[in-house]
C-alpha cells in the first residue's frame, strides 16, 4: 500500500517558437448516405513537449476524429481531410507521402485506445506484440525484442513481467491490458502520445493507477500527451491545458485552473455546473437543456445556440470566431464577457 499525491510538472516550452505539434484549422468531412457530415470544422490546437493537453467533449464532438486525423488512421473514404494542416515539429503531416507518414506513426506519434482488449491480437502473446514494435521498426532479433518487451512491461509496472511475457491478452485484467497497450505505445519513445479515453472502460481504482502511470511516463520522457476524454474529473487531475470541443469545433481553450474557476463559454460552464455537488443535495441539478447537435443538420450560427442560456439574436445568425480573451485563453462565444461575469458571481 502506497500513498501518493498526484504529480505535477510545469509545462515545458519547445525550443524555438513552434510547439511540438500544431493542428491548424483542421476540417474533416464524412460522406454518408444522408449527406456530408462536417465532423471536424476548423479545429486548431498545439502541444508542447512534456505538456498534457486535455481535449474534452462528448460523443460526436469531433475529439476522436481529430486525433485519428493526427495519427493518419481515418478511414478514407468515407472520411476526408478537406482543409488545414497538422504540423509535427514544423512538418505538415498531411502533405507527407504515406511511406514517410507511416515512419512517424507509432514511432514518434503513438496512440492508445479505450478498448484495450480489442486493440490487442488475441492469438499472439503480449510479449510478442510488444516486441513486434522493435522487430518491425528497429529490426531487432526475436530474443532482443523479447528482452525489450520485458523491460517495457516492467516500466508500465506489470508485476512478474518475466513470467507473464508469454501470456495471452485474455489472461490479463482490464487494467493490465491497458498497461500492455501503453507499453506498446511508448516502446519507441514517441514524442507525442494520444490517449483516447484511456480509462473510460476501467474501474475507478484502476483508473487512478493508469492515470498515475501516464503522468510518470510523461515526466520521465518529456513526451507531450493529448488526453481525449469526457470526464471532467480526470481532466482536472492531470491536464495542463484544456480544449473543449462541441459540434466539431473548439469552443474554449484555457489553462486548466482558469477554466474550472471561470469558464468563458456557456457549454463549458454548463458542463461544470451540472456536476453534482455536496451542497446541492436534494436540489435539482443544473442541466444543459436540449440534445447534442445533429451533425447532418447543424444549427445556424453558433451550434450551441439552441441550448444556450446566454443566447442573443446574433448567435442564431453569426457563428462566433474563437475570440482571444486573454494571453492564454480563447472562447468561441460572442458573449464571453457575460459568461465570465456569471462565473465570477
Amino acid at each position: 500500500m502506497k500513498k501518493t499525491s498526484t504529480p505535477m510538472v510545469p509545462a515545458g516550452r519547445a525550443p524555438g517558437g513552434e510547439p511540438l505539434l500544431v493542428v491548424d484549422d483542421l476540417h474533416v468531412e464524412f460522406t454518408t448516405r444522408q449527406g456530408v457530415v462536417r465532423a471536424v470544422n476548423g479545429v486548431s490546437y498545439s502541444l508542447n513537449p512534456g505538456e498534457t493537453l486535455a481535449v474534452l467533449g462528448e460523443s460526436g464532438s469531433g475529439k476522436s476524429v481529430t486525433a485519428q486525423a493526427i495519427m493518419g488512421i481515418l478511414d478514407t473514404p468515407p472520411a476526408r481531410v478537406s482543409r488545414g494542416e497538422i504540423r509535427f515539429r514544423g512538418t505538415d503531416l498531411l502533405r507527407l507521402p504515406e511511406e514517410a507518414r507511416s515512419r512517424i506513426r507509432g514511432r514518434r506519434i503513438a496512440m492508445i485506445f479505450q478498448d484495450a482488449l480489442s486493440a490487442l491480437n488475441p492469438v499472439f502473446t503480449v510479449g510478442f506484440q510488444i516486441g513486434e514494435m522493435f522487430r518491425v521498426h528497429r529490426g531487432a532479433s526475436r530474443r532482443d525484442a523479447e528482452k525489450k518487451a520485458i523491460e517495457l512491461m516492467d516500466r508500465v509496472r506489470i508485476p512478474g513481467a518475466r513470467q507473464r511475457v508469454h501470456d495471452y491478452p485474455h489472461q490479463f485484467s482490464g487494467g493490465m491490458r491497458q498497461r500492455i497497450m501503453i507499453a506498446m505505445s511508448i516502446a519507441l519513445d514517441p514524442e507525442v502520445l494520444i490517449a483516447d479515453e484511456p480509462t473510460t472502460a476501467l474501474d475507478v481504482t484502476v483508473q487512478a493507477q493508469i492515470m498515475e502511470l501516464l503522468a510518470e511516463l510523461r515526466r520521465e520522457s518529456d513526451m507531450g500527451l493529448i488526453l481525449i476524454t469526457h470526464d471532467l474529473g480526470v481532466v482536472a487531475d492531470v491536464a495542463d491545458r484544456i480544449a473543449v470541443m462541441y459540434g466539431g469545433r473548439i469552443v474554449e481553450k484555457a489553462p486548466v485552473h482558469d477554466i474550472y474557476r471561470t469558464p468563458a463559454h456557456p457549454y463549458a460552464k454548463g458542463l461544470l455546473d451540472s456536476v453534482p455537488r455536496v451542497d446541492q443535495k436534494g436540489q435539482e441539478l443544473f442541466a444543459i437543456k436540449g440534445m447534442p447537435p445533429n451533425l447532418l443538420d447543424m444549427p445556424s450560427g453558433c451550434s450551441f445556440h439552441p441550448r444556450c442560456p446566454y443566447r442573443q439574436d446574433d448567435c442564431v445568425t453569426d457563428a462566433p470566431p474563437l475570440y482571444e480573451i486573454g494571453p492564454t485563453r480563447a472562447s468561441a462565444c460572442h458573449y464571453w464577457r457575460e459568461v465570465l461575469d456569471g462565473s465570477h458571481g
Binding site: 460522406t31 476524429v65 479515453e197 440534445m291 445533429n294
Partner: peptide, 14 residues
C-alpha cells in the same frame, strides 16, 4: 473511441 463517427447511424440520432 466514443465519438468516432459511425456515419450510417450517428447523424440519425437527435
Amino acid at each position: 473511441m466514443s465519438d468516432t463517427l459511425a456515419p450510417a447511424e450517428r447523424p440519425q440520432n437527435g
